[in-house]
Amino acid sequence: MIVYPYEEFEKDVKVLAKQIRNNFNPDAIVAVARGGMTLGHFLAMHINTRLIFTLNSIHYNDTAKLGHIEIFNIPELSKFDKVLIVDDIIDSGETMQEILRILKEKFPKIEFKVASLFYKDQALLEPEFKVKKTDEWIEFFWEKI
């Protein structure tokens, strides 16, 4: 397990924001609750947008993977052309793959791209914007209450 402190997060957000600004410049951000919310907020500040939304996904109960994926509270995005989907980590990639499938079906004219702090090699998809590859479980600073 890797403990991911705020100081490292602060540096990594700047790296990620620069990648996004230079290569995509989204009209809006969708943060995947709960893991993507802190990152989504910081990215919105760095790329200077107030157009940030959330959707919910449930694929884990603590560290145990569930047998199904729930995606709900999907925001209305039809007035946008480019939307960035943000999550803290792309683990198996199953959740993000399902989120993309649902969003592309609901909003076929939107270009969606994914940003994540961490991703795993064996994931079903690699985010377009990312900072670190890992094979370990990450304990993010915002998970400590």
Results as ranks from 00 to 15, higher is better:
A64S: 12
V86G: 04
V15R: 08
A17G: 13
K109A: 09
L100Y: 03
F80D: 09
M37G: 01
N23E: 15
F107G: 02
Q97W: 05
L43R: 01
K104D: 06
T134L: 09
P127M: 06
E8L: 13
V83W: 02
K14I: 06
V30P: 01
S92L: 01
S57I: 12
L103H: 08
F42I: 00
I102V: 15
P26C: 11
E139R: 09
H41K: 13
E76D: 15
E128T: 08
N23S: 14
I52G: 00
F9W: 07
R34M: 05
S116N: 06
V30Q: 00
E10I: 04
M37C: 14
K130N: 15
I47D: 03
K133H: 11
W142T: 08
A123M: 09
Q97N: 15
E76R: 09
I52S: 09
K106G: 07
S78C: 00
V30W: 00
E136P: 01
R34K: 15
P5A: 07
K109S: 14
A64M: 14
L103A: 02
I110V: 13
I58P: 00
Y4W: 05
K11C: 04
A33S: 14
P127H: 00
E10Y: 12
A31I: 05
Y4I: 01
E128P: 04
I52H: 08
K106H: 01
E94V: 02
T95D: 02
D135L: 07
K130G: 04
Q19P: 03
E7I: 09
H41Q: 11
L84G: 03
E136L: 15
V114A: 07
E70T: 13
E128D: 15
L84W: 08
K144M: 12
G40S: 08
K82F: 06
I29W: 01
R34F: 07
L124G: 04
L84I: 10
E94R: 11
